[in-house]
């Protein structure tokens, strides 16, 4: 007896979390990445801290705002969002994430106030809690993906590291774009260091994705089939273009920029990285939803 076919079943909805969730992860990477890297550059290069004290809150508020907007829009009962705060269930990474991001928003608002009033000490006081909140805001989505038991390809520690790399890519790319748009206001050494961060984090995250495709031990047939869908299925264009845009092109362009001191290439690399990051996150989100679970 060979072969088996489903000959009768009901139709089930396929994609549960769509582009709004991809956008959530993408925008959050920019907000938290600019915050984490901004703190580093303020400490390392205090002579140019005004740039980062200005752009940390501006970029943070814009992109965490987008994150929250798409999160709420994605709810089927968006006006019940408050229940996360009044009926919280703390085993859920969704709850933890909502609380952490809300606290992070407060930190961003304080940092905005600090910049607007020129009160540097105020921002200095919230640097440590801000760092902790930005870090956990970056990784809580990995916790949600880890708790999504049905999607076996999402494994918590790997997702967490991948999201930290994404934040580094997004943060460095965002600062390089801002610097280019405002006429190269950053010192050359800072610009070069942002390029190295983009280069390094792109390389490491590329290694994770390529490792997942070619070298990872597949724990289940589900995981194996998801990788097949990523490589050859309907999300393959998102995945491959995302891979080239996020990792390969930025690494080449940043390499040229830093080697030959032609920093307009770093700006171009950053544009590609940010577009590619959305594409690859979308592919990674959709692929495990393309298989039947029952």
């Amino acid at each position: 007896m060979i072969g088996a076919e489903v000959t009768f079943d009901v139709a089930l909805p396929k994609v549960i979390w769509g582009w709004l969730v991809s956008t959530n992860m993408w925008a959050k990477s920019i907000a938290t990445g600019t915050f984490l890297l901004g703190l580093y550059f303020i400490k390392r290069y205090p002579e140019q801290d005004n740039f980062f004290r200005k752009w940390i809150p501006i970029l943070g508020i814009i992109f965490i705002g987008i994150t929250l907007l798409v999160t709420v829009l994605d709810l089927h009962h968006m006006f019940r969002f408050w229940k996360i705060f009044f009926h919280p269930h703390f085993t859920s990474a969704v709850t933890l994430g909502a609380w952490v991001v809300s606290a992070f928003v407060i930190v961003l608002l304080i940092s905005f106030w600090s910049w607007a009033t020129g009160n540097k000490k105020l921002f200095d006081r919230i640097m440590i809690p801000g760092f902790i909140l930005a870090f956990f805001s970056t990784i809580y989505t990995a916790g949600i993906m880890g708790e999504a038991t049905a999607r076996e390809v999402w494994v918590f520690p790997a997702e967490m590291i991948s999201m930290l790399f994404s934040a580094m890519i997004a943060g460095s790319a965002a600062y390089l774009i801002v610097d280019a748009v405002y006429g190269n206001v950053l010192q050359e050494k800072i610009r070069r260091e942002l390029g190295y961060i983009l280069f390094g984090s792109a390389g490491l995250e590329a290694a994770m994705f390529i490792g997942e495709l070619f070298f990872a031990k597949m724990h289940s047939e589900f995981s194996y089939r998801v990788v097949e869908i990523l490589a050859f299925g309907e999300v393959a264009p998102f995945f491959w273009i995302g891979l080239v845009f996020t990792f390969i092109i930025p690494m080449i362009l940043v390499g040229i920029a830093n080697e030959y001191r032609k920093y307009r290439y770093a700006w171009l690399a950053s544009i590609f990285a940010l577009i590619g990051l959305w594409l690859i996150k979308h592919a990674w989100l959709i692929a495990p939803q393309s298989l039947p679970l029952s």
Partner: peptide
């Protein structure tokens, strides 16, 4: 109580 986030649908391995 449900807020319609669909996390449960993402988590349930039985599509139930």
């Amino acid at each position: 109580r449900c807020i319609g986030c669909a996390s449960c649908m993402m988590a349930c391995p039985y599509n139930a």
